[in-house]
Design a protein around this nucleic acid. Structure first.
Length: 309
DNA sequence: AAGCTACCGGTTCGTAGCGC
DNA sequence: GCGCTACGAACCGGTAGCTT
């Protein structure tokens, strides 16, 4: 097979390329890879010859990536990271007590991470790894044991375990609530929101309509109205943080903010929580349901949620 | 199985260019 | 001039494939 018919380059050249691109130095790449500078230089030359494009601009006492080199690095680096991670997972001692959990960034940041120490206390032999991502992952391929996701009603995958229904309600910090009352701008009824700043999640693609203020207003039978201002954040945990700091009124996802409400740091406004047609579920990866640590983790999440509802 | 050969990927050593 | 860089030639050792 000649090189023009090969779709992959010689794979042993890629770590040299990645290291040289990262350090922008053949010498430093060589030190990292326990090779000589010359060997790295030859690897890069061989790769460039295979690809038919120049990856580096050789300058005096300096190295720079060409545009092609930058583009190639953007693809190659994560692939090598994946291979390294997969290799590490295969080679690490099989203690059987490492549990990898994927969930959304918002659930990880606002619910899971603050409670994880409690799970560790109850199950000190289980090492939990959190892979927070909004993407739907291939659990088997990514080495994930358990996923926690909020799933629309009717779309639950077979075997998923319901954890908690999702409710939303306007929330603000207790201090903000009191100050608003003292300033004669009380938060007694939904219409009072017009005198306050509303905190939004930046959602240009409409992925999370159920936590949009517009949806809540519509469901509450309110005509759209302008408010004193808006604050917008990219992630839901930032929304919660802003509400805690008294920067305005946020749309509270009750499962995620229940601890703050219980500690009276956050106040649920207008006394009414809207139930959404979606709920948090735990999903086991194929084969993971039989692992005791996976069962322990899911049971613990259920118990934690139930105890705070 | 043993020997030969070609090839590959590495090293060593030397060269050249440039900035300080 | 020194120190750092990349590059190239010559060479070495291991391996795969072929021949006997």
């Amino acid at each position: 097979m000649d090189k023009t018919s090969r779709s992959l380059p010689p794979l042993d050249l890629l770590p040299g390329f990645e290291a040289a691109a990262r350090h922008l130095s053949f010498t430093k790449a060589a030190e990292e890879l326990f090779l000589t500078q010359s060997a790295v230089s030859r690897q890069i030359l061989a790769l460039e010859e295979f690809l038919g494009v120049q990856l580096f601009e050789r300058r005096h006492r300096a190295l720079a990536l060409t545009e092609a080199g930058q583009a190639y690095l953007r693809t190659v680096a994560p692939v090598l990271d994946h291979v390294r991670e997969a290799t590490r997972r295969l080679r690490e001692p099989r203690t059987g007590h490492v549990l990898t959990v994927t969930t959304t960034l918002s659930f990880a940041a606002t619910w899971l991470v603050p409670r994880l120490a409690r799970f560790r206390k109850e199950h000190p032999r289980v090492d939990v790894r959190i892979a927070a991502s909004g993407d739907v992952l291939d659990m088997a391929r990514e080495g994930i044991d358990v996923a926690i996701r909020d799933i629309p009603q009717g779309h639950e995958p077979a075997g998923s375990i319901p954890l908690a229904g999702e409710h939303v309600a306007p929330i603000c910090s207790a201090e903000y609530f009191e100050e608003a009352r003292a300033a004669k701008r009380p938060l007694a009824k939904p219409e009072d929101l017009r005198h306050h700043v509303l905190i939004h999640v930046h959602d240009p693609t409409g992925k999370w309509p159920w936590i949009a203020w517009e949806t809540w207003m519509e469901s509450s039978g309110l005509e759209p109205f302008t408010t004193a201002g808006t604050l917008t954040f990219g992630q839901y945990d930032q929304v919660v943080q802003a509400a805690l700091l008294g920067q305005g009124i946020a749309m509270g996802r009750m499962t995620l903010v229940s601890d703050h409400v219980r500690r009276k740091q956050l106040v649920v406004l207008f006394g009414k929580r809207q139930r959404l047609a979606r709920a948090y579920h735990a999903i086991y990866a194929p084969g993971a349901a039989a692992r005791p640590e996976a069962q322990q983790f899911v049971s613990w999440v259920r118990a934690e949620i139930a105890s705070r509802e």
